[in-house]
Computed example of a mutant assay.
Amino acid sequence: MSAEPKVSIHPSQASLAAAVAARLITRLVDVQSERGTATVVLTGGSIATAALQAVADSPAHTAVDWAMVHFWWGDERFLRAEDPDRNAVQARAALLDHIGADPVKIHEFGSKDEFPDEDAAAADYAEQLAAAARDEREADADAVQPDARLPRFDVLLLGVGPDAHVASLFPELAGIRTKGATTVGVADAPKPPPQRVSLTLEAINTAQEVWLSVSGSDKAGAVGLALAGAGAVQVPAAGARGLRKTLWLIDQDAAQKLPGRLIDQGETAD
């Protein structure tokens, strides 16, 4: 059973990034107080990178034991390992290199340096996820795993494209239609680079909490369609749901086409 979306509206891109950072720090502290470790799934894009930088800049970030946080990614561009366009490279520069994260707990998608194609990289990531799930079960027989192929994801972060894609799952393409797998190779993404690797929607929807962070008027149409109940194949963002919480964190520009019922129910941040 997935959670219905809740909306939080912020006045600017900067305040949105700060809000995502503050929520993430708070959530990780809460999870660690319950279980000792925590797992977050990162994403790419300008808001995601700004939010990670805001985490690094926040005095409150020291409340998190970062050495006990596992980091995964929702998707990655299939490029050379140190290409600056890779989500992992951007995340390291913004946050991971500055907080004492355990390198063993940073789980990057494979790169062109390691694999012949995106399908091989996707298969390897599926194996990494399955191995982490097994380790989790061995460490805690009571571990909550909605899917035995996946570790528990406490928070999964997503951006949303103007076409309503999430991770590297694009409207109408094979990735968003993939069933029975946790990862997928994408050979024909409509935005560069065309070769990518991604979690599937099935994998995304095992997360305890899914947060979609969106900024800019060019995303307003995608936000409006997703929250109006469009189908996931046509509007992938509509299909992203957390088990306990589905949270849309958006700025005023991205909120321009929200359904009226959600504007009424949404939380407007100062």
Rank of each mutant, 00 (worst) to 15 (best):
K105M: 14
R23G: 10
A230H: 03
H10Q: 05
S217K: 12
D85K: 11
F109K: 04
Q195G: 12
P162T: 04
V210D: 00
V41M: 11
S46E: 15
A222I: 03
S8L: 14
T178K: 13
G161S: 08
P171V: 08
A17S: 14
A232T: 01
A122I: 07
R134F: 08
G175Y: 08
A238E: 01
G242P: 13
A174L: 10
D57R: 08
D83A: 12
A203Q: 02
F153T: 02
E138W: 06
P146N: 05
V55G: 07
R86W: 11
L95M: 13
D124R: 11
G221L: 06
I99F: 09
A123V: 14
A93L: 13
L129P: 07
A94G: 12
L212N: 04
V166M: 02
K219I: 14
P171S: 10
A189S: 14
H98C: 03
D65N: 10
A148V: 11
H165P: 07
S111K: 00
A101F: 10
L52I: 02
I47S: 10
S217I: 15
V214G: 03
D119R: 12
N205F: 03
D253W: 05
G74W: 06
L173D: 12
E82L: 09
S33V: 08
E114W: 03
V144F: 11
D97K: 04
L201F: 07
R149T: 08
W72C: 04
L262A: 07
I25C: 02
L201A: 10
